[in-house]
Simulated assay, not measured.
Amino acid sequence: MSTAFAVPQFTSKDYSSFFLAGALCCTVTHGGMTPIDVVKTRIQIDPALKNHSLLSGGRLIVAAEGPGALLTGFGPTAVGYLGGAKFAGYEFWKKQFVEIAGSQESAVAHRTAIYLGASSVAEFFADILLTPLEATRIRLVSERHYATGLTTGFMRLAREEGFQGLYAGFLPILCKQIPYAIGQFTVNEFCHELVFRNMSEEKRRSLSGSTKFGISLGSGVIAGFAAAILSQPADTLLSQINKGHGPTGSMVYRLVTLAREAGVRGLFAGLGPRMIMTAGLVSGQFLLYGGIKDMLGAPPGLEIHKETKSKY
């Protein structure tokens, strides 16, 4: 028989802490990864760089355009990935779905669905904020003299193309970011579960700081690899759409046509650099997120790992 259990009642202050921690961790990591993101995007959309690696592509860009080219789009990259909405949203929706489950046994049995649902819904709402800034970032990267920065690039895109231009990539960005979020959060949850499954609560509480760091780092790296692989095809299509490639017509028709033209190999162009970038991003974000939450005095997130008897 299923038993009831107590779910933590996070306050508005708790969610504010989750949001701030998520915002800071994503801004720091994405801003720091701008050079890799520039090279990755150029490999996806520039025929001259199509078959180059991260290092060789970066050398060509620096040789032709100077070192400053690797920081193109720093503003929207740092600001656009304010992940506060995603991290706080994941905490919120995971709690909602656990409450819907109604019992500890049911939540544990359906934990995969809870992780998938919470990450997907949180990412959907975060993407409403992200899409215009992502469109601006790709314009700045792909057209070097498009604008001088985030504000001027955003204003030019809004002025010249309006709502349609700002949200032209909304469908492909959903196709990219939702699998990304699924890989990021779901795989990270299961990596931690795998580590803690046969570990007693007493041993878990006595883990050293370096051990906890290693577990978080390893889980984040694996989750980052998964996020990169799952979202790579849509990431390539998003770059193409924001560059203006493809036929006219509905977004679905354009995406299908571009996918056929690219083929499997083309859709996964730039995967190597992106896996490196994403592993660093995701692991860095989880480490920073946990550290910032601790500094803010925020409570731990809700856990529904199989091995736990009650973490609620």
Rank of each mutant, 00 (worst) to 15 (best):
Y312F: 11
I43R: 07
G301A: 10
F97M: 09
A101I: 07
I304Q: 06
R204C: 11
A64M: 06
Q104P: 08
A118M: 07
Y180H: 13
A269H: 01
P67A: 10
I215L: 13
S283V: 08
S16C: 12
K86M: 15
F196S: 11
P47R: 04
M277P: 03
G58Q: 02
P299H: 04
S53V: 00
G224A: 02
L194A: 15
C175K: 00
A228V: 12
R42C: 06
K212R: 15
L238R: 06
L267G: 03
I304T: 09
L20C: 09
S231W: 07
G183F: 04
T29Y: 11
T308F: 14
H30R: 14
A109T: 12
A118T: 01
A234M: 07
I182H: 06
S283G: 05
G149Q: 12
V62P: 01
I178M: 03
A6S: 10
I43Q: 02
R254V: 00
K293E: 10
L194P: 05
G68W: 07
E261V: 05
L174T: 00
Y115L: 13
L20P: 05
L49E: 04
T308R: 14
E99P: 00
R156K: 11
Y289T: 06
A122N: 05
I61V: 08
Y115E: 15
K203G: 08
G249Y: 03
F124Y: 10
V282H: 06
F268W: 02
S200T: 02
V252Q: 01
G214I: 01
I241A: 06
A85C: 11
S216N: 13
E307K: 09
V28T: 05
T308Y: 13
G280P: 07
L230T: 11
E202D: 14
T72Y: 07
T131E: 10
V141Q: 06
L287F: 00
A269K: 09
